[in-house]
Design a protein around this nucleic acid. Sequence first.
RNA 1: GCGUCCUUAGUUCAGCGGUAGAACACCACCUUGACACGGUGGGGGUCGCUGGUUCGAUUCCAGCAGGACGCACCA
Length: 1051
Amino acid sequence: WKRMSGFNVCWLPGIDHAGIATQMVVERELLKTEKKSRHDLGREEFLRRVWAWKEAQGDRIAIQHRALGASLDWDRLRFTMDEQSSRAVREAFVRLYEDGLLYRALRLINWCVKDGTALSDLEVDHEEGVKGELYRFAYPLADGSGEIVVATTRPETMLGDTAVAVHPDDPRYQAMIGKNVRHPITGREFPIIGDAELVDPKFGTGAVKVTPAHSFEDFESGKRHKLEFINILNPDGTLNYNAGPFEGQDRIKVRAPLKEKLAQLGLDRGSEPHTLALGRCQRCGNIVEPLMSKQWFVKTRPLADAVVAKVDDMRFVPGNWRAEFLRWMENIHDWCVSRQLWWGHQIPAWYCEYGHVNVARVKPSDCETCHSGRLTQDPDVLDTWFSSGLWPFSTFGWPDKTQALQTFYPNSVLETGFDILFFWVARMAMLGVHFMGEVPFRTVFLHAMVRDEKGEKMSKTRGNVVDPLDVTAKYGADALRFTLASMAGQGRDIKLSTERIAGYRAFANKIWNAARFVLMNADGFDSRAPLASVYDRWILSRFHRCADETRAALEQFQLSDAANGIYRFIWNELCDWAIELSKPALYGEKSPAERASAQNALLTALEGALRLLHPFMPFVTEEIWQRLPNRSGRSIMVAPFPAGGARDEAAEREMDVIFRAIDGARSVRGEVNLPPNQKIPLILFARDRGLFRRHERAFQHLANASEVTLRAFDEPRPRQAAVHVEPEVEVHLPLAGLIDFAAERARVEKEIARTESELQGLRKRLDNAGFVERAPAEVVEKDRARAEELAGKREKLARHLARVTSVEEAMEDKNPQQSQGNGASGEQGHRALDQLGTHGGPASGSPGEHARPAEEPGAGEEVLGGPGGSEAPVQASDEDEAQGMAARAVARVKSIARGLMEKKPDEKRRGPVSEEEENEERAEIAQADASARAMPRRAKTHLAKPGTKSVRGSGNKADKAGKVGKGAKAGRVAAAQGAKKGTRGARGKLKKQSTRPMKTQSRANVRGRPGRTAASIGRTGGGKGGGRGSQRGARGKSGAKRRPSSRKGTK
RNA sequence: GCGUCCUUAGUUCAGCGGUAGAACACCACCUUGACACGGUGGGGGUCGCUGGUUCGAUUCCAGCAGGACGCACCA
């Protein structure tokens, strides 16, 4: 994205040597295959093996990156153990030493008995809630005057105890402070001390055994009280000679015999269950032991302070990590950097036989203190994170002042997982500020943790890592990348689900097919063709909007917003609407100018969308882009990132109206159980007929209308119809004989209920004086407008319901004929409709009215009734309508009665039930009438013609509707909501095919047109590669996956 | 112990003061001349619980419950 935006971008590939992890893996392998330990091989040979392993793995990592389409500067590939990095490590080590920030000391450190190395605090994981026991035993006082009972979770450490501590103010023990106890096993004597810091008198017995050499707390106490430090452990976790009779036993296994011994001595004082936190080695999971050991430490306080002072130079994304980062920096401990491993940077310190320390960049010829020539290098290596901490500048040539270093330090963005915020980010920050004087990066972007499908953390040592090569082979790199991007907005975890990846593979496929379509219809494309259609202006406006939103999202690192926005644009706007709307023009049904315009718009939108999408889906986008006649440049990788552009608000508003109307028509169709392929006529009662006239073809095409008839908004409605109501238009599907009236009634009732409940809510709010007074005026206004709109809608629906109900009833009346008619043909149905004509009045409309294409110009469509309408239908008004409804209600009651009388005896038995139903329906009609009555004001504002007298309408609520006229439309249209959701149907059944390569499936799907997929796109693209080249293209994303392996061959 | 975050449709998650959205999954219909890895339509949520602030709370505050994570030397 940044490169496309014109920046000088360097993304540098690199691999760290992962000290412990790597050594462990190789050792494990060695043990498995050769039954040897690293000591059997010796340091040199072992390192040779590790290097060999690294070469293989390093290649693999590079292959994975390439397969994922990471656009890295491979010439700059770095490894933390390469010479350049090693030189930087030695330089940094020496400088820190010279600056007094690096020292060697005997201190208590975390020791992994299995890996045989020291660990930093960060490499110890604390397992909480471990069930253990709190064991009590007594130390006899040396003077024989009694005993003191201590409690411990680690009885074995008593062998290294050098004091018993109590709280100085504890009355139970105050008198004992200063006395000595005798160790029951080793016989040593040591004091009872008062230590307020160490002891909580409420815990345990209030007396603590102090083991300064094996507990961090006790270590501090030991220093305070100048206690003896007795180390009882060997590096492998067994007890040493200080353990006396227990020497040689494992420190955990020794607990039982030790406790038995204490019991024998009569010192056991029982135990109780206790939960504790256990420190475990992050790598091997073994229990970590605090151990006295001589190690190298980085003095972190000054480094951390310097970072804290410059923390504002760094932007954390998400922002809450800043606080976490600062907290850690402020509570930092010195960093133990030496590791008793072989794989890593050997510490550049040399010791003479007298133990003098020589820290140097290269091996000194003799000791600088005593000039002894017998120098041996420290066998230990440095923590992996030491070299990684130098990464932002060591990779650009530091300590040399290179051009690259000048150009790229500080880095713009560090992107990594939050799990290594302290391990890596904090260390880079400290070392960066120290050595370069500036924070190493402006932005720290911490993404969510990618976990496996079960939510487990992927880890090299645990072996549950999902190999991107497997995923890309199955779904394509584009799908994987897009999945990760689309999920990157989430909190902390991404559970990488293959279903999701499969979904985005479908997206790539969708783009491919959309491109095929556009290119198939691109002949004669002219980029200068003026935009001749609102559809074309609309899609380009939407594209500009999408481009702006994408850029904005990327600026904020909202990758998911960016990805999802592009997804919506391409699928729901470009494919679902723009392409569909363009078809008539592209197929030559319209003028050549409109065809050229459509081509231009679609190609422009597609080409731009590809550039937007390219950072997310590099492979498909490039593949398609190369075939576009309107691309400019050699590769989409360096094509400019779309800059947005002018919005065409008028086009967007217009299309919003059209979309809602078409959606409405489709929705009604669906709910009234019309099969999708059943063409039906549409009648639009539009406020602005000119507007809808321009889109007749779209209604035919997208709502599968056989014809579209436009009527004025105030004309009477047909009685037999299904209806969708929008503020700007009522969409009628006049369908005698086709329509499922019961379904329509149910649908309308539901719709009314929905409208009603929302309206009630609004009314309640608007009736609340507090709301009207206190809420912002615009909110109140918005609600009023909405309420009016809803009221209007409810009114229209209610009338419609009344019509439907009366038609149902009429059909009941004519049941015999009607059923015959239905059976025969749709023609009968039409006749029935014509006979019924407009509500209330005599039959109107000529036969075949709806069969006539709606091409009548001008006033033609205003005449609904035509010759058959006895009364001028133009003047039909609400009053007519209301009267009609009332009349129908009466008629209905009569018909019910008649129906009951005509029913056969056995049907009569169900009499009460149907009567109930009828009552219900009667109530509905009454309600509908009431609604109609309540609303006339509104309608009149728009519709009443001079001379029409208002009969009713002074009804209570109606008065409120005074302002109707203004409010109604303003709000609706403004909300230029994107195209509707676009739910797609069942494709889940295809899952079992998903492992098949896409190519095969494409072929299969084309059915009898082999090669078509490939050929069409290849041909139009102007390339001659109709053959192999285009087949490759047809493979789309799966083509991408093969590249790495072929590159592997060349490597 | 201290601290952070999460709890919204079957699932994964957006939204974050004006009575809820997406993707996937699900149901129905549809092989129409880009795409069945497709199209159209549909169902599905008392936004963890309890209080408070507010004209109004899924959204802000407090408490509780459940979950995740980070830090920490509690015997």
